[in-house]
Write a protein that binds this DNA or RNA. Structure first.
Length: 766
DNA sequence: GCCAACGTTGGC
DNA sequence: GCCAACGTTGGC
């Protein structure tokens, strides 16, 4: 029976899904799947990547030395077109400084296809004739998407043409192949199906219902009793969307049939779905059917529609290259300043800009960061004279962190080293001596004194924005991020002496394997050792994620750090981003303090705490009462524990502590353990709650109060598999797809070596 | 070492 | 000359 179904799996077109709205599901699937796919266990993290993660273009004068290192980077497919280069001074008008005029706009991806052989992987560049129109891209996960869940083939119904709701189910549903359905009239609910139309692929709120319906519309079923189990906020972030965080990246592509014999290819074997832009001819990752132009060439209205895809690709490490170029070519000798020629001037000007990241490409000042506030045009006093934080190159900022690692004479020129032995120039630059100032007429000192006196408000704001507590040991660091229309503040609490990850050579050295998480590294201040940082597109809630997978970091970061991601959008739940806070676990859980919810709020510092603590968690998503102390403690404790492979703890709104199996290889890929207040837990499989009568519950305490309990349960689960259900021969005509269903009381989880639970077996027999 | 402050420079 | 912001300096 499975043969036929497998056949169905292999021939997704038989399901003839209707045109899918490509915006949500497809993209989100890509986002999540790609984002989480990192073959290095423990390096998981995903977040909608900043543009700077896009591959650097080859420098013009670079010999094109090909791929030097093997790393996957994450990028948006709908690349922003470089808009304006802002060098020092006012940006030039009327020119496109990022690329020379004669230089064709060829995304590095295309160029890199040639050199990618260095890593043994060639990017299939589609024949121009095979643009997405010629080869319409199917909703990716409808088909044979092995990302979906467990190893066992998912049974997918072949729907009659246009008949079943399945075919009308938007691709949100296709991200995860249709789930086996308990045979129960209660499960029929077309309204639910409708819901999926408007919900993001990774959707919270619809879980408990069966999503596949086969009856005519309007025949709403009543809710399953068990549905009571899962209130919407408790819906797990489906591991089918987030899974595979630790296993090989998988991409399903219909664009390149050759690469998708099995419906998927691992990224190590093939690279993302490239189409050729009709406009500029460059290769770009198509996001949906009909994508014929790259993001840059697309009409603006189109750009807004699709959230950025995340695509992994191999690339050389831009910062290294840049560094080499900038470090060696120009003033190899520090004392050789007079040799600055025009070339050097040009380089100097762009020292602080990679010209590729979204920050460099950003045109507008945010008007809210400290530097903007300082600007005269925003009413500031122009003391800082710095570029808007949102426009400060992220890459260079990252390189900044490398400076400590750079050998003498090879420092990053973007951050000139101070030469104390240098002869002072005629005019002293920089900050004037305070003493000097004080010696001058204090009444005329409009800087220090008046600043504080007359502008306390601004001072306070500055204080908050800069996050600097004078005299305090803990610092806040903010960095601004922008994702499409959403702006985030990354806040990091830092103990003095904390090694910012930006400056952590170990982490920088790990970029090869963790480019995906670069942004996280740079924003989480050493949290990579334990924390996972997720910023998942399409997942509106679940604000906290904690990785339990130990990362190889020999330099444990200081404890007590918290980072958070603040959606500045008005509606945090609708901006399509999951804001997950990083909690650096390392302090006794009891030190967790309730978080404030204000963006600008700063911590009321605990006095002289001997150990670093988690002091503050930002979230605009949930309310204050969303957190449960005990649950947070457990969550925290889990973060200090090595959980069974690829299980990840997620703190979600509710509060719910969810444990997700992130590896698709695991038979528990679709299983979520949810722990609620009071440590009551429940297990759900493919969004269906495991019935209380299941033996699993009997083998474990009612409440998972300790890490041991949790681990024990997870280990137990790992010994189980998902019931494959049975084929329903009574449904519809012979022309209709063979449905695999589950018995109403299906066990869902069965011993690994079994295919069906007794109920389903019995159903077959009867 | 970080960072506020500001001289200075390049573009307009 | 104005503006933006880079690069440097010195306080902390």
């Amino acid at each position: 029976m499975t043969d036929e179904l497998n056949g169905a799996l292999a021939e997704p077109e038989m399901t003839k899904p209707e045109k899918t709205s490509p915006i949500g599901a497809d993209v989100v699937t890509d986002d999540v799947v790609n984002a989480v796919g990192n073959s290095v266990p423990g390096k998981v993290m995903s977040e909608s990547p900043p543009d700077w993660l896009k591959p650097m273009e080859e420098d013009e004068d670079d010999g094109g030395d090909g791929v030097k290192s093997s790393e996957w980077i994450i990028m948006k497919t709908n690349d922003d077109v470089p808009k304006v280069k802002r060098g020092r001074g006012r940006p030039r008008k009327g020119s496109h400084p990022v690329r020379s005029k004669t230089e064709p706009i060829i995304p590095p991806l295309l160029g890199r296809t040639r050199s990618s052989n260095a890593s043994g992987t060639a990017i299939p560049v589609p024949d121009p004739a095979h643009t997405p129109e010629a080869l319409p891209r199917k909703p990716q996960s409808i088909n044979h998407n092995p990302i979906s869940t467990s190893e066992k083939p998912r049974l997918i119904p072949i729907s009659p043409a246009g008949g079943s709701s399945l075919s009308t189910t938007p691709n949100t549903e296709f991200h995860s192949p249709p789930r086996l359905t308990r045979v129960t009239p209660l499960s029929i609910d077309t309204s639910v199906t409708q819901n999926f139309v408007h919900t993001p692929a990774v959707k919270l709120g619809n879980v408990s219902r069966q999503s596949v319906s086969f009856t005519e519309p309007g025949k709403d079923g009543t809710e399953l009793p068990i549905q009571l189990w899962l209130c919407p906020p408790m819906e797990p972030i489906s591991p089918t969307k987030t899974q595979d965080m630790f296993s090989d990246q998988i991409v399903s592509s219909a664009n390149f049939p050759g690469t998708t014999l099995n419906g998927s290819v691992t990224l190590k074997e093939s690279l993302p779905l490239l189409s050729e832009c009709e406009s500029c001819g460059s290769a770009f990752p198509a996001q949906k059917i009909g994508d014929v132009m790259c993001y840059g060439c697309r009409p603006k209205s189109d750009k807004k529609q699709s959230p950025p895809n995340i695509v992994f690709r191999k690339k050389q490490r831009p910062e290294h290259k840049k560094t080499v170029k900038m470090d060696i070519v120009p003033d190899g000798d520090d004392d050789d300043d007079d040799d600055d020629d025009d070339d050097e001037v040009v380089k100097k000007r762009s020292r602080r800009m990679c010209q590729q990241c979204d920050a460099c490409l950003r045109e507008d000042d945010c008007g809210t960061c400290d530097f903007c506030v300082d600007k005269p045009k925003f009413g500031g006093s122009n003391k800082k004279k710095q570029k808007c934080r949102l426009r400060q190159c992220k890459l260079q900022s990252r390189l900044h962190g490398q400076k400590g690692n750079i050998v003498e004479g090879k420092r990053n020129p973007s951050l000139p080293r101070r030469r104390r032995d240098e002869k002072p120039k005629l005019k002293r630059r920089g900050r004037p001596s305070k003493k000097q100032k004080l010696r001058s007429n204090p009444w005329e000192d409009d800087d220090e004194v008046s600043y504080k006196d007359e502008d306390d408000k601004e001072d306070l704001r500055r204080y908050k924005m800069n996050g600097r507590r004078k005299g305090g040991k803990r610092k806040w660091k903010y960095s601004f991020k922008e994702e499409e229309e959403d702006v985030f503040i990354e806040a990091v609490i830092e103990e003095d002496g904390a090694s910012n990850t930006e400056e952590n050579p170990d982490i920088l050295a790990n970029q090869t394997s963790a480019m995906v998480s670069n942004e996280m590294h740079s924003n989480t201040s050493g949290l990579s050792a334990q924390g996972l940082y997720y910023n998942m597109s399409g997942v509106p809630t679940a604000p906290y994620v904690l990785g339990s997978v130990p990362l190889c970091n020999s330099n444990p970061a200081p404890m007590g750090q918290v980072t958070s991601s603040l959606p500045m959008a008005d509606d945090g739940t609708q901006n399509g981003f999951l804001q997950i806070e990083m909690v650096r676990v390392g302090s006794p859980p009891s030190h967790y303090t309730e978080a404030a919810q204000d963006t600008e709020q700063h911590v009321s510092e605990p006095q002289q705490e001997p150990t670093p603590v988690i002091t503050h968690i930002f979230s605009l998503v949930g309310g204050e009462n969303d957190r449960d102390q005990g649950l947070m403690e457990l969550f925290t404790s889990l973060g200090q524990t090595v959980l069974p492979a690829h299980w990840v703890g997620v703190m979600s709104k509710g509060p719910i502590l969810q444990l997700l199996q992130c590896s698709k290889i695991s038979s528990m890929a679709d299983t979520v353990v949810q722990i609620e207040k009071g440590y009551f837990y429940q297990v759900s499989v493919q969004n269906q709650p495991l019935l209380l009568m299941h033996a699993v519950y009997s083998r474990h305490p009612t409440c998972l109060e300790s890490v041991d309990d949790v681990v024990s349960l997870l280990l137990d689960l790992e010994g189980l598999g998902v019931c494959q259900g049975y084929q329903n021969f009574h449904m519809g005509s012979q022309r209709e797809p063979r449905m695999s269903v589950r018995a109403a009381l299906c066990d869902l989880l069965i011993p690994k070596d079994e295919e069906q639970c007794p109920k389903c077996t019995h159903a077959v027999e009867s």
